[in-house]
């Protein structure tokens, strides 16, 4: 048998003047993390293949005419990267503005800090008599487990990836339509219970804006009782089959209100099945 062990080689790139060494194949984003440079991301997640569509993580790469997405661009030896130039700041600000001008970002908690940091003003596009086009659709409540609120959807593709070949391989949803009219949809927009959906909740687990929510969370939000600051998160192991999936139980007022899984665990990579995700009611005698 031949030895197939891959020796990990390192590459060194320069970010904002500072040399950073990362393993070959790492992305510029990973190098930024290594260098302690905070970079906004939206469509990137550690347990998904980068789709580099949101463009909020762009950086300036010496020799490249356009900015490059740091989340997917592999670091190559000798690269010189700038993360805080006027061009970078402008593009990031505009991306955030564009998103905020078209959809409801009120629950996109991770973005609020960046919107402020880059001075994005999503309200400057419309004028009196010329309102801008926005995505405005009624919330889809079609079952007792999830809701879908596409007026909050930024089309980051994460749910499609989690439903598809990055985890679940169910492909109940896909991007349909084109351009600004593109939406995440089942075939012919049939309801989720009529679709291929198997309710693993992995789409909800990766949604960054609250467009997809567990019904438990949605119901609490509707009555103003969703209080993340009062919640505890406890890591334990699923009670069903023998695979050993790690669960993070989000508990508020001594009740489980949400179940997630750590993205960095080798067993789940953050993904669960319907039983692990939703089969906890019996803990509360239900």
């Amino acid at each position: 048998m031949t030895d197939t062990t891959i020796t990990e080689t390192a590459v060194t790139i320069t970010i904002d003047g500072q040399p950073v060494e990362v393993a070959e194949g790492s992305t510029i984003h990973a190098a930024c993390v290594e260098a302690g440079i905070d970079t906004p991301t939206l469509c990137w997640a550690e347990n998904l293949t980068p789709v580099n569509v949101c463009r909020v993580c762009v950086v300036e790469l010496e020799g490249s005419r356009a900015l490059v997405p740091s989340c997917s661009r592999p670091a190559e030896e000798g690269m010189v990267v700038q993360t805080d130039t006027p061009r970078v700041r402008h593009s990031r600000r505009m991306v955030l503005e564009f998103l905020g001008s078209g959809v409801d970002l009120s629950q996109a908690d991770d973005l609020h800090h960046w919107i402020k940091a880059y001075g994005a003003d999503p309200d400057r596009y419309g004028t009196d008599g010329h309102p801008v086009e926005r995505v405005e659709e009624p919330v889809k409540v079609q079952d007792e487990l999830y809701i879908r609120d596409y007026s909050k959807c930024v089309l980051c593709y994460k749910c499609v990836e989690a439903c598809g070949d990055d985890a679940q391989h169910t492909f109940a949803i896909a991007v349909a339509g084109r351009g600004f009219d593109a939406r995440i949809s089942t075939e012919f927009d049939v309801t989720l219970p009529d679709s291929a959906c198997v309710y693993c909740g992995n789409c909800v687990g990766v949604c960054p804006t609250g467009a997809l929510q567990f019904k438990t969370e949605y119901d609490l939000r509707e009555v103003g009782e969703w209080r993340p600051d009062d919640q505890t998160v406890t890591r334990t192991v699923c009670s069903y089959c023998g695979v050993g999936c790690n669960l993070d139980l989000h508990v508020q007022d001594e009740r489980i209100v949400k179940v997630t899984s750590p993205a960095d665990h080798s067993v789940t990579s953050g993904h669960l099945c319907i039983k692990g995700r939703f089969g906890w009611q019996y803990v509360h005698g239900e």
């Binding site: 564009f98 998103l99 004028t127 089309l155 351009g179 600004f180 593109a182």
Partner: peptide, 27 residues
């Protein structure tokens, strides 16, 4: 605006906002 595939934010939203701005100018 019509031909943007919709994948990346700058083009998906930018093309719409650009068109809106020009329509407004036209009016």
């Amino acid at each position: 605006r019509n031909e943007s595939c919709g994948q990346c934010v700058p083009c998906r939203v930018g093309a719409v906002r650009q068109h809106e701005t020009l329509v407004q100018m036209q009016r």
